[in-house]
């Protein structure tokens, strides 16, 4: 965190090639790194997915529990997203309570899923006002090489699409599990696309070295109808209005490609 000098040296190197449309690792400005997705990787979780975005590796596990609804939404299930930046994933991560970075990551992933209404929460109510299903989405970063937001959001969606719910009956206000499973009701597919800015160049999917030197980032989440459902700007730099509209266009194009890939996984 305190090493501010090295990124300044790196920045020059990274920024140099951008005007010619190339990045240090050979990618074009709007290219993602290679993506590999596996689903159903954890037997004890109701749903799970592991994503490799270049060298970034994120595991998402989904657990479903029974709990009380919020008082303002008595007929709806509850969605909870938590992110762990486990010390195993980077020399910069330390054990301890969630850092601000982890909280922001969880909240951005949460916003995409919530605002796109991806989970049909009204179908997750067993006893109105008393017993609903809680969907816990736990994001586990296993190797940090940049762009955790997009990797986590994609893995979360892949895991949701692969989540099984136990069958149940309600007897005297209690939930009784029955053998067999149904699919968790998912009706939208939010995809987060993060765009970094270095000088006047917009780059998609910044890897760690790029992430250290970008002026600012913009994460735009689009729904399957390609409307925007969530935005988060990060970093101390700025964007012009033109850059933002350009980024929105990139996000919807890239979102279309990535959505196909995630749904197929």
């Amino acid at each position: 965190m305190t090493s501010t000098i090295i990124p300044l040296v790196k920045r020059k190197k990274i920024a140099e090639t951008l005007p010619s449309g190339k990045r240090l690792d050979g990618r074009g400005l709007a290219d993602y790194r290679e993506i590999k997705l596996e689903t159903g990787v954890i037997g004890s979780a109701e749903g799970s997915a592991r994503i490799y975005l270049g060298k970034t590796e994120v595991l998402v596990g989904i657990k479903i529990d029974i709990g009380e609804p919020f008082s303002d939404t008595p007929n709806e299930g509850v969605l909870t997203v938590n992110a762990e930046l486990a010390p195993i994933a980077s020399p910069d991560f330390e054990p301890g309570p969630p850092s601000k970075e982890a909280i922001e990551l969880a909240r951005v992933v949460d916003r995409g899923i919530r605002e796109s209404k991806a989970i049909a929460v009204e179908k997750l109510c067993a006893v109105p006002g008393e017993k609903v299903f809680i969907v816990f989405i736990d994001v586990y970063v296993l190797n940090h090489d940049g762009n955790l937001i997009d990797a986590s959001a994609m893995a979360a969606l892949a895991a949701l699409l692969n989540t099984k719910m136990f069958k149940y009956v309600v007897k005297d206000g209690e939930i009784e599990k029955k053998p067999g499973y149904t699919q968790l009701p998912i009706r939208n597919q939010p995809i987060a696309v993060t765009i970094g800015k270095i000088d006047d160049n917009l780059i998609v999917d910044p890897e760690l070295d790029e992430e250290h030197v970008i002026d600012a980032r913009l994460t735009i989440t689009t729904k399957k109808e390609e409307n925007i459902c969530a935005i988060q700007k990060g970093g101390v730099g700025y964007f012009t209005a033109e850059e933002i509209l350009e980024a929105a266009k990139i996000a919807s194009e890239k979102g279309r490609e990535l959505r196909k890939l995630v749904v197929k996984a």
Partner: peptide, 25 residues
């Protein structure tokens, strides 16, 4: 930043089409 005409905070939740987004911005 009004004199420099650049944007330093941008967040969104809800749903907007590309056209609505430009107008809202």
């Amino acid at each position: 930043l009004p004199s420099l005409n650049v944007i330093t905070l941008l967040q969104m939740d809800g749903e907007l089409s590309a056209d609505e987004f430009e107008k809202a911005l």
